[in-house]
Measured scan of single mutants.
Amino acid sequence: MLDDRARMEAAKKEKVEQILAEFQLQEEDLKKVMRRMQKEMDRGLRLETHEEASVKMLPTYVRSTPEGSEVGDFLSLDLGGTNFRVMLVKVGEGEEGQWSVKTKHQMYSIPEDAMTGTAEMLFDYISECISDFLDKHQMKHKKLPLGFTFSFPVRHEDIDKGILLNWTKGFKASGAEGNNVVGLLRDAIKRRGDFEMDVVAMVNDTVATMISCYYEDHQCEVGMIVGTGCNACYMEEMQNVELVEGDEGRMCVNTEWGAFGDSGELDEFLLEYDRLVDESSANPGQQLYEKLIGGKYMGELVRLVLLRLVDENLLFHGEASEQLRTRGAFETRFVSQVESDTGDRKQIYNILSTLGLRPSTTDCDIVRRACESVSTRAAHMCSAGLAGVINRMRESRSEDVMRITVGVDGSVYKLHPSFKERFHASVRRLTPSCEITFIESEEGSGRGAALVSAVACKKACMLGQ
């Protein structure tokens, strides 16, 4: 009897593995994704193909990295998701002549009506938060230079001027797309009239992360975010950046690689679950690469896999709870928690219980395998993109072996128990001629924006502006 049951459990697990095998990517698959990513990057950089390229390769006008001589107080704003952060950054000489960066910050959550109302409502709310922060720190009387981390696709015309191309991540505030974001912020500050600010720089969160990590390690020339969304930036040779005049030196390019796949480059790798996630998203047909990796989508992918296993009578005796059938019910943090389970399955059992399920031991094991399959594919897909960037940098610099540091931020990278190990191992397999160091950014977005502002202020002083 026991043997029969054991055989049935083994057969069930084997069927589960057959279904989950769809998520496995072979090294040849990853090399294919990497080569296609490089081709799209090239198209994004070139003037004649930029418009139709899915990977936009947006110039950021960040050319210099901090040298350690900029000092002063800077205000930093960070808008990239449902939370908005205001930070005071003091850049100065530390002990023994070292450079020191001290920060104080406060988080504000953005109400739904500000995210989806008008641009005026959104930026009025942001300036209200700045006003509140300055009151708390008794700094209303000071006109501070301000660095703005704005983590949406922007076409820069200068370091302090950028046109919002399109909202992502659930934002829909009308009247912002096609307009200068810094102008919208300046107008809102003017409307309030109770404080003055000098907006000197606007950067993407990947750029802010790279600059913040450069402060720790001067070989950091790539910034990457794996959180709600997924994106990367890197220092490109100016001669390859056709959208900006000049051939000397390097400029940081914001790849906006989340949109890779929007022209069909990933079609052969998309599964039924991916198509369902895409169809029910706020932007169907867009940001397809990001939807395979980002935390906004990972939990939902797992939920759809679990429903398939229920329908195949391989999980929960073929019956799903009402909660499990509800879109968004299986949160991405559950994926991390399930994979963090120590082996007694308590954590998995508790999560499934909150979803109205009474799982068996085998159910718990199957749910864990589903989570591992989805998150491992995410790590491997992400590795193909980064390997594409790094191999490109090595080739354009004609280096036999390139040493490089990548600064990384984002909740999936930082909080998932195995993502970074799987990701690092896969990147290294795909970049055999590179020695890569990964560092995690601390308060990256805010500190990085302030350091970019410090560079901009120093330049302005040198130019006598």
Rank of each mutant, 00 (worst) to 15 (best):
R5N: 03
A6R: 11
R7I: 15
R7Q: 08
R7V: 12
R7A: 15
M8L: 15
M8T: 12
A10T: 11
A10Q: 15
A10M: 15
K12L: 14
K12V: 15
K13F: 14
E14K: 11
K15R: 15
L20F: 14
A21W: 11
A21V: 07
E27D: 03
D29H: 02
L30A: 07
V33S: 01
V33T: 03
Q38Y: 03
G44L: 00
R46W: 06
L47A: 09
E51Y: 02
E52V: 14
S54R: 15
V55F: 08
M57Y: 03
T60M: 01
T60I: 00
V62G: 00
E67I: 04
G68I: 09
G68N: 07
G68Q: 05
D73S: 02
F74G: 00
F74E: 00
G80D: 15
T82G: 09
N83R: 08
F84V: 10
V86N: 02
V86Y: 02
M87S: 05
G94R: 09
G94H: 02
G97Y: 08
G97I: 05
V101Y: 04
V101N: 02
T103M: 03
K104F: 05
M107V: 08
Y108Q: 02
I110T: 11
P111D: 03
M115Q: 08
M115R: 10
T116R: 12
T118C: 15
A119Y: 04
A119T: 09
E120G: 13
E120D: 10
M121D: 11
F123K: 08
D124G: 05
I126W: 05
C129D: 04
C129I: 03
D132P: 02
D132K: 08
L134Q: 04
K136A: 09
H137C: 06
H137A: 10
Q138F: 13
M139C: 05
K142D: 09
P145D: 00
L146S: 13
G147P: 00
F148M: 13
T149D: 07
T149C: 14
F150H: 15
F150R: 15
S151D: 14
S151E: 15
F152G: 13
F152Y: 14
D158G: 10
I159N: 07
K161T: 09
G162L: 13
L165H: 13
N166Q: 10
W167A: 13
F171I: 11
F171P: 12
S174M: 06
G178R: 10
N179H: 09
V181R: 04
G183N: 06
L185T: 04
D187L: 03
D187V: 01
I189V: 04
I189N: 04
K190F: 15
R192F: 11
F195R: 03
E196G: 05
M197T: 06
M197Q: 12
M197E: 01
D198E: 08
D198S: 02
V199C: 05
A201P: 00
M202I: 09
M202K: 02
M202D: 01
V203W: 00
V207H: 01
V207M: 10
A208P: 00
M210S: 01
S212L: 04
C213V: 02
Y215N: 13
D217C: 03
E221M: 06
V222S: 01
V222R: 00
V226W: 11
V226G: 02
G227P: 04
G229A: 14
C230S: 04
N231R: 08
A232M: 02
Y234A: 00
E236A: 02
E236R: 00
Q239R: 04
N240I: 01
N240Y: 01
N240E: 03
V241I: 05
V244F: 00
G246Q: 02
D247Y: 06
D247A: 01
E248T: 06
W257V: 10
F260Q: 00
G261W: 05
D262A: 12
E265S: 03
E265L: 07
L266F: 09
L266G: 01
D267C: 01
F269N: 11
F269W: 04
L270C: 06
E272M: 06
Y273L: 11
S280W: 08
S281D: 04
N283Y: 13
G285A: 14
L288C: 15
Y289G: 15
K291N: 14
G294W: 07
G294R: 06
K296Y: 11
M298G: 09
V302N: 08
L304C: 11
V305Y: 00
L307P: 00
L314C: 12
L315C: 10
F316S: 13
F316D: 07
G318F: 04
A320M: 13
S321E: 10
S321P: 13
S321W: 05
E322A: 11
E322C: 15
R325F: 15
R327M: 07
G328W: 07
E331L: 15
T332W: 14
R333A: 14
D341W: 02
D341V: 01
T342N: 03
D344N: 09
K346G: 09
Q347N: 04
I348K: 05
L352C: 06
L352A: 01
S353W: 11
S353N: 01
L355I: 03
L357V: 05
L357M: 02
S360A: 02
S360H: 01
T361A: 07
T361G: 07
T362W: 12
D363S: 04
C364E: 05
C364P: 04
D365P: 02
I366Y: 05
V367T: 09
R369F: 09
R369A: 10
T376I: 03
T376Y: 03
R377N: 00
A378P: 01
C382T: 11
S383C: 06
S383L: 01
A384I: 14
L386W: 00
A387Y: 01
G388P: 07
G388D: 04
V389M: 04
V389W: 00
I390A: 10
N391R: 10
R392C: 05
R392M: 09
R394F: 09
E395D: 12
D400A: 04
V401D: 02
M402K: 08
M402T: 11
I404A: 05
T405H: 03
V406D: 00
V406G: 01
G407E: 00
G407H: 03
V408G: 08
V408Q: 03
G410V: 09
G410P: 10
S411H: 11
S411L: 06
V412M: 05
Y413L: 11
K414P: 10
K414Y: 15
H416G: 11
P417V: 10
S418N: 14
V427C: 09
R429M: 15
R429P: 14
P432G: 14
C434W: 04
I436T: 15
T437L: 12
E440M: 12
E440R: 06
G444R: 10
S445M: 13
S445G: 12
G448W: 06
G448D: 08
A449C: 13
A449Q: 09
V452T: 12
A454R: 12
A454H: 14
V455S: 13
A456P: 05
C457H: 15
K459L: 13
C461I: 13
Q465F: 15
